[in-house]
Amino acid sequence: MPITEAPSPRVLDVRPMLRAGEEPFQAIMDAVGALAPGQTLRLIAPFRPVPLFSVMANRGFAASDRPLADGDWEVTFSPVAGMQETPESEDLAVGSSPSAVFWGDPVLELDLCGLEPPEPMVRILEALETLEPGDVLFALLAREPVFLFPELAKRRHEWAGNFDASGTDYRLLIRHGGGKGH
């Protein structure tokens, strides 16, 4: 899309959250989800948030950054034309990678529906440690693994998940993001 009449940037300052000890990833993803077409996100952080660049690139945003006074950084995430297609299903978990449709076939499929929480989370994270960067894992769960997502984000894996049509099984695709353990 040409960005001739782009709306003014949305500004998100995560410094107060970080000072309060809060994890700002959710707030950033919420802000990204609330962007109008063509709108840019201007993020103010107390450091250069390098890992976020790849997360945002996967969502179709290019990053440009500049240092501010006092060691703070301002990063502008601009939408790259044509890369913001919304995922096919509106019900995809927020935080899901829009590029999931281009991922390869899963190398591993796990049916975790019968397991007691948090065992599904344990199995998925254990399985991911055995996979190579770029490998895709598919898991079937009985509920949305809300406590798994922050851990996936920290380990820089990508995911896309939703409930099946009947609403009983949760389907989760995870692509190994190459984050190294140890």
């Binding site: 250069r48 390098v50 890992p51 997360v55 920290k154 380990r155 353990g181």
Partner: peptide
Amino acid sequence: VRADERSSAHADHRSTLAPR
């Protein structure tokens, strides 16, 4: 509870926003 703010040697679990 300090869920997202620890640096540790036993595992790389830096937050998405943690400085490198």
